[in-house]
Design a protein around this nucleic acid. Structure first.
Length: 466
DNA sequence: TGTCCGTTGCACGT
DNA sequence: ACGTGCAACGGACA
């Protein structure tokens, strides 16, 4: 992506001459005063430590702080696997709206406010630039494919129209393009090589901006339809039905789709080099994992917390990511990435992808034999299983000796705990294909795929049987 | 080619 | 608590 702008020509990185602007404050380009500035908020929804806003606030007569609500992100989608839009779960959307409210109230303390607009973001931004006679456009640089596409359209228009663009790197500590360029045009594939290329973060030599002296007022908004931050939006979405843990209750009819899906894949996948794609051919493979029905309480409890809270512990992310991709289920990491992207309120495209590449041993980390046990790993930190009892109430009376592997509990114990495995709580493998049975098929299907961790030794057997 | 090593594994030994 | 072997490996570097 190219952020061309005549007034930024002197703002190249001193070490690599990447044509991007940086957030080091002493490198601000010289600017004309008295112009209208558009501050386009996207991710950094704050007024402190915000180089783009700081620059916008300097020497502008009017600053229009905007956020564009993309209907693709916010429109309820009945087909999604959790309540929310096509792209984001309810928790994520709620978190975004709360962040917007917070930003709006911060701006109001300066006599400004957040102008909320609706529509396809690049169209909306370009319309604002025209309507408000904007001379300067400020926004935080972002690497997400989503923003890269938008930014391309917007910056094309802006540079053609002589609008100054200031798009500092402040979401990340390093400039991705700079790192890749230093590495001869390729992204580093190990953590050490990344550290070496990155060096010290740029803020180590320039202080963070903690206070903003003032924010210029908003000019006339003319014919652009601006609104306040929507506060009733979340109510538009369908609430999870009934008990929040309802989706962990087994439904025996769920088994048939697996069989239905398996057969055509098996017959089709017998041609070498055809590269059938797991995530499209096996839509139900990861469903048990996603819906907290794997039968491993440690894994399922984490997935319930993810769904309910939109946040899980770092090591919990490791556990479920390992389980899904290379520990037990052998599902493509992108499948898990998509679930996290939707459900985690703090998910970030780059971090999320990076972590999944890491945990699946597809990049950066390759110790495939280091597998988080879905039984003993959690037990180490929580021997009594309090975490499991909290998020899987169905197991709350299961004795601690069996809570990490309830299928081993004698039937008398299961009865006493009011939790029969296979009925009240899934038996491992009940709702997903068993890795041991489909191992060879999996190897065959995926042997030519890249970024795909798959077993290569047919003698491999899963470590934890069910 | 060979060698080293890898942010946070596990199980078993002492 | 600590050390060791296990093991389906890939990337960096000499």
């Amino acid at each position: 992506m190219r952020l061309s702008s005549r007034s930024l020509s002197s703002s190249h990185c001193h070490c690599c001459s990447t044509p991007f602007s940086f957030s080091s404050f002493n490198r601000y380009p010289k600017m004309k005063s008295g112009s209208n500035t558009l501050m386009w908020f996207r991710k950094g929804l704050r007024i402190h430590d915000n180089p783009a806003l700081e620059y916008a606030a300097k020497s502008s007569t009017y600053v229009y702080p905007i956020f564009v609500i993309d209907p693709h992100y916010m429109k309820p989608d009945p087909d999604a696997f959790s309540p929310g839009s096509k792209l984001a779960g309810l928790n994520r959307i709620r978190f975004l709206l709360e962040s917007l409210l917070d930003l709006d109230s911060s701006l109001k303390k300066f006599g400004s406010r957040l102008l909320v607009l609706h529509g396809e973001p690049s169209d909306v931004v370009i319309r604002c630039l025209k309507e408000w006679d904007v001379k300067r456009l400020c926004f935080e640089y972002d690497t997400d494919p989503y923003y890269q596409a938008l930014d391309g359209k917007v910056t094309n228009y802006a540079s053609e129209s002589g609008i100054e663009i200031f798009s500092p790197v402040s979401h990340t500590l390093f400039h991705p393009a700079e790192i890749i360029q230093k590495n001869g045009g390729k992204p580093p594939l190990s953590y050490q090589s990344f550290l070496k290329l990155a060096g010290d973060p740029h803020w180590s030599s320039s202080p963070l901006c903690t206070t903003l002296p003032m924010i210029p007022p908003i000019g006339d908004t003319r014919n652009c339809e601006v609104s306040e931050v929507p506060t009733e939006w979340v109510a538009k979405f369908e609430k999870p039905k009934g008990d929040p843990s309802a989706f962990i209750k087994p439904a025996t009819t769920m088994l048939s789709p697996y069989l239905k899906v398996l057969l055509p894949v098996h017959s089709r996948g017998s041609k070498r080099g055809q590269k059938p794609h797991l995530s499209t051919n096996f839509p139900y493979w990861a469903a048990a994992w996603r819906d907290a029905r794997t039968g491993f309480p440690w894994i399922d409890a984490i997935m319930v917390q993810l769904r309910k809270w939109g946040w899980i512990h770092h090591l919990a992310r490791h556990s479920v990511a390992c389980f899904l991709t290379r520990g037990d289920l052998f599902v493509h990491w992108e499948k898990g990435r998509n679930v996290f992207e939707r459900l985690l309120i703090d998910s970030d495209w780059a971090i999320n992808n990076g972590n999944w590449l890491w945990l699946s041993c597809s990049s950066f980390f390759y110790q495939y034999n280091r597998i988080y046990s879905p039984i003993s790993f959690g037990k180490k930190y929580d021997p009594s299983g309090a975490y499991i009892r909290h998020f899987l109430p169905v197991l709350k009376d299961m004795p601690k000796e069996y809570i990490y592997e309830p299928w081993t509990a004698p039937l008398s114990i299961q009865t006493k705990a009011k939790c029969i495995v296979g009925k009240d709580y899934p038996k491992p493998g009940q709702f997903n294909l068993q890795a041991s049975a489909y191992q060879l098929l999996f190897v065959y299907l995926n042997q030519n795929q890249t970024n795909q961790v798959c077993p290569v030794n047919p003698s491999w057997r899963p470590r934890w049987r069910w």
